[in-house]
Design a protein around this nucleic acid. Structure first.
Length: 409
DNA sequence: ACAATCCGGACGCCATCTCG
DNA sequence: CGAGATGGCGTCCGGATTGT
């Protein structure tokens, strides 16, 4: 028996070595073998713990141990998603291991419909690693991670992930999220989806935010930024009027997100841009908004002064709850550029319809000498020439004004 | 202190774009 | 048309984290 185990172990080790040295993209095979070694306790033949065995294998194959751990986790998680106990089934996994690992994070934090959509895509091998990683990042609560040794008895399983009964901390922020969605409160969300999709925000994000699936206190940074974008769109007429000191609402207006502009070979990206015409007699005005959801985000950004040349008005939008960030922006911004405005955006309600925007500091009118470059980008979007950009092609004031109307009503 | 993970970002490959 | 620039993507690395 033990002789047999010993042979199986050394064969497994040779196989893994051959696989990792030859072709690292065949992660499924590596995962299958490593999982078998663990489940059948073959590693004990070497007198090592499983962790030590993984470490040893990594050294032998001249790779990092975390690589093997990732393959193992991806393999196990794949089996769970396809509800199979058969290790052989890992062969049928089409996704990259990173994609699966990130899908697991999405499952922990995102609402069920969001997860389900991504899962289908990942299992079909159609999701990129980047996509999965971004999604996981967007939904991950800032405070939380799952590092550290799992509780005794659940080592080497995936069950310990997303443990529900962590006594003490009490902030069970994301756990209540999905159930409320399952009830299908779609009346408000579908309305909002129709309206905002024309401004270029992912319907999934809107549905998630508008139906109030998370408590904002623990909202991840990505979700905070999304919430700010939605609030800015719903209140666009109001805050632009105040910023420009206008007494009447604009005749036409449109909002765009993530507008890319090239400037002296640097690629810049404005988080939020609205183009406004107050009346037919006046020239259009461009409001550029840079969204900052955290202090670190603000401190790392060195590029924002470059944006001034593309706008008639430029503002920072920050969450109204983040006093530390507001202090920092209020200190730094006027010193550098007098003409930059600051918007404090209420993100308290995940339903962006009920949030307010306060103009903490009014922007002054800029020259906007390179505005034409920004119009170029927007024009190409309207034509549908700008490849990956999903958004605001053809967006007209209609969508936003309907949102405005339903907000008022 | 140790074990068992987990994380974020650097790295390198490849496709596409831009420029001379 | 070819060389360099750019951007997207998957892989890999170094070390952080936390229960025991």
């Amino acid at each position: 028996m033990s002789q047999n185990c010993y042979e199986r172990l050394s064969r497994a080790e040779d196989d893994i070595q051959a696989l990792l040295e030859r072709n690292r993209s065949n992660w499924q095979e590596v995962a299958k073998i490593a999982i078998a070694v663990r489940e059948d306790k073959l590693y004990q033949q070497s007198g090592l713990s499983f962790t030590a065995w993984v470490q040893q294998m990594a050294e032998r194959c001249d790779c990092q141990r975390s690589l093997i751990w990732r393959y193992i986790k991806a393999g196990k998680y794949y089996l769970r998603t396809i509800e199979s106990d058969s290790i052989e089934q890992i062969d049928s996994a089409l996704a990259a291991p990173e994609a699966l690992v990130n899908l697991e994070k999405v499952e922990r934090h995102a609402p069920k419909p969001v997860f389900q959509g991504l899962k289908d895509k990942v299992l079909a091998g159609m999701a990129t690693v980047r996509e999965c990683r971004d999604m996981a990042k967007q939904y991950k609560p800032e405070s939380e991670n799952r590092r550290g040794r799992p509780p005794a008895g659940s080592e080497g399983t995936y069950e310990h992930l997303g443990r529900q009964n962590s006594q003490g901390s009490g902030s069970t922020d994301s756990s209540s999220a999905d159930s409320s969605f399952a009830d299908g409160d779609l009346t408000t969300s579908s309305l909002a989806t129709n309206d905002i999709s024309s401004i270029g925000i992912s319907p999934v994000a809107i549905r998630e935010a508008v139906t109030g699936l998370m408590t904002t206190g623990s909202m991840p940074p990505g979700a905070v930024a999304q919430n700010i974008v939605q609030t800015l769109s719903f209140t666009l007429v109001d805050w632009t009027k105040r910023c420009a000191g206008m007494r009447y609402p604009p005749k036409h207006y449109v909002a765009h997100t993530e507008v890319r502009v090239s400037h002296r070979k640097k690629r810049l990206r404005l988080d939020y841009v609205s183009v406004i015409r107050w009346s037919n007699k006046r020239p259009k005005e461009v409001f550029g908004v840079e969204i900052k959801s955290s202090l670190a985000d603000f401190e790392h950004d060195q590029k924002w002064p470059l944006y001034l040349q593309f706008c008639d008005y430029f503002c920072f939008a920050v969450p109204a709850e983040n006093e530390e960030l507001i202090d920092a922006v209020q200190t730094v911004v006027p010193e550098a550029h007098q003409e930059v405005g600051i918007l404090a955006v209420d993100t308290f309600n995940t339903d962006a319809f009920s949030n307010e925007v306060e103009v903490l500091r009014s922007p002054a009118k800029l020259k906007g000498e390179s505005k034409y470059l920004l119009y170029e980008t927007l024009y190409e979007r309207a034509l549908g020439w700008s490849g990956a950009e999903t958004s605001g092609a053809g967006a007209s004031g209609a969508g936003a004004s309907r949102a405005e109307a339903s907000r008022a009503g």
